[in-house]
């Protein structure tokens, strides 16, 4: 039996909304330590990795007697989650050898209980081994700032060059009709930590990425006030949104490399 009771349905709603356009079908891997989801987009350029830890405060109850994989169509899941109020407590439930995933939405005042079942799918997806590595550069910034940068630069071109150096980080785009550049200086003196821009640098990195994917990742902006970008030359960028009281959502994007 698997049963996870999440205090805030809005968190799951935001997660699924941010994933469903790039990753339409995905396996939720449930174990006693929590829920993980890893999925590649259909062009095999981007990867998402979600981790919701069972021992964090976001779960009121969590039970998983044996490891199970729940193959779900995320577009359908998003439709079901739209039936939940933002303040509803949401319970996910499945049997040990499940064909069905059950969603139960309890309203805050306890007056309304809704139950929805969806059919699970057999999804044949290849799990990739993502190594824990030190990155040459880790940039932390307000998530809305990163969203704005991606959205602004995507007006002019398809790829952005991210240039991390000790003073800060530069984002540059060069298209057929024009070019643009946004310089972000390191700023760790502002009062609120979530408004800071910080750059941890071991080695300078200059790398190009497809803006289409970065813009898609920023659909997760409402999950977190901050986002971190981890870069190493000639390896995928990691865009991480922490999820308070649960874990994190990471996106990996393969670089564009001179061939």
């Amino acid at each position: 039996m698997f049963e996870a009771k999440m205090l805030q349905s809005s968190v799951l709603k935001k997660i699924i909304e941010s994933l469903k356009d790039l990753f339409s079908d995905a396996n939720f891997d449930c174990s006693s330590s929590g829920i993980t989801l890893q999925d590649m987009d259909s062009s095999h350029v981007a990867l998402c990795y979600l981790k919701l830890r069972s021992d964090e405060e976001g779960f009121e109850d969590y039970r998983c007697d044996r490891n199970i994989t729940l193959g779900v169509n995320l577009v359908l899941m998003s439709k079901i989650l739209k039936c939940a109020g933002n303040d509803d407590v949401i319970t996910l439930r499945a049997e040990d050898e499940p064909n069905i995933l059950t969603f139960i939405f309890d309203s805050k005042n306890g007056e309304r209980v809704s139950k929805y079942d969806i059919k699970l799918m057999e999804i044949d997806s290849e799990l990739l081994g993502i190594p824990d590595t030190e990155y040459s550069c880790v940039v932390k910034m307000p998530s809305h700032e990163f969203q704005r940068i991606c959205s602004n630069l995507s007006q002019l071109g398809d790829s952005v060059t991210v240039d991390c150096h000790k003073e800060g980080v530069d984002f540059k785009v060069a298209g057929e009709q024009g070019s643009g550049a946004i310089k972000l200086k390191q700023n760790t003196t502002v009062d609120k930590e979530e408004d800071q821009v910080s750059v941890e640098l071991n080695e300078a990195v200059t790398q190009s990425f497809a803006l289409k994917f970065l813009c898609a990742f920023t659909k997760a902006t409402s999950l977190s006030d901050t986002v971190s970008l981890s870069l190493t030359q000639d390896t995928p960028i990691v865009v991480e949104y922490p999820i308070a009281q649960h874990g994190y959502l990471r996106f990996y994007l393969a670089p564009k490399i001179e061939e």
Binding site: M40, H44, V45, A46, L47, E126, L127, L128, G129, I130, P131, S159, S208, A210, T235, P236, Y252, L253, A254, P255, K256, I257, E258, E259
Partner: peptide
């Protein structure tokens, strides 16, 4: 010529 890399070429298959 800049080419888009594939994500799986960076991570070994688990």
């Amino acid at each position: 010529m800049i080419g888009q890399q594939k994500i799986y070429s960076f991570f070994r298959v688990a």
